[in-house]
Amino acid sequence: MPASQRDVRNRISAVKNIQKITRAMEMVAAARLRRAEQRIEALRPYVGAIRRMTRDAAEATGYVPSVPILSERETVSTAGLLLVAGDRGLAGAFNSNVVRAGIAVGREYEARGLSVLYFASGRRPSSSLTFRGLEPRESFIGFSDRPAFADARRIAERLMVAYVDREVDRVEVFYNGYISPMSQVVRRETLLPLSEATLLQDEQASGRALGDGQADGERGEVRQAEEQRADGQTQAEPAARRIYIEYEPDPEAVLKRLVPDYVKLSIFRALLESTASEHGARMTAMRNASQNAGELIKDLTLEMNRARQAEITQEIMEVVAGAEGLG
């Protein structure tokens, strides 16, 4: 039996209401995405400057001092996995992709006889892990919309404490890397132990992981100034090209302070990329939902017209039958 006009009309109005919500959510996500992209850009000059300082301090000491988070463990018995995703859903496969990738690696480690400790950033990965019986060791929630550096520092401090105090022997992070509003890819990176190569590798090679990339006006300016000064001196003595810098307290202490910053910045970068990815994924998901709602409205309108036509036809037939009966 065809649905009555009123039923179909009610369904159309319900779908229209949903479409209004999905359209609004799409627009909100688009606005937040732009801000999230700007925040990734804003991190670049800071990371560039940290890298320059590290290089200068390492040149002054001539070696990288021994810092606990740089030392690799001979045997790895416990792995820490940090899953970074969102506090909210309605963003397509954004949350589940990270959780799935993290759990797959966790299972692989367990199959090799390692213990696995999960850490979660975001309500979704935290509840997904709990639901699967893999209670996270610690969850960091409430900031996935707009993470502050203080949030990244809190997570980094917790993980470094776990590493230095030997709760874990290795830490990896899983997050949605931001490529474009339409495209995100799950990235897996080793956070701890930090490799010396990460500290001293050239800026372009390490650009993606820490977010300093290539475009950095401020860096260009300082280097240019240094080069101008260097040009005035003899080329035969590279050592003389360097300016004497007073270190406070000393280059080694400065370097020791700089090393943990790389972990904090890697996590901050992951949080910022994850946030941009979340807004991008939500924008796409909501756009699809709005389109689907539009199609559904079209189908239902057609159905309602048919029902109305059927009712009219029925009424005409009744009138004709009545007239015939009278005649």
Binding site: I243, I245, E246, Y247, E248, V254, R257
Partner: peptide
């Protein structure tokens, strides 16, 4: 306190 023309410095 740093004034103009301070000597090159890198500190924590």
């Amino acid at each position: 306190g740093l004034l103009a023309n301070h000597e090159p410095l890198l500190g924590t």
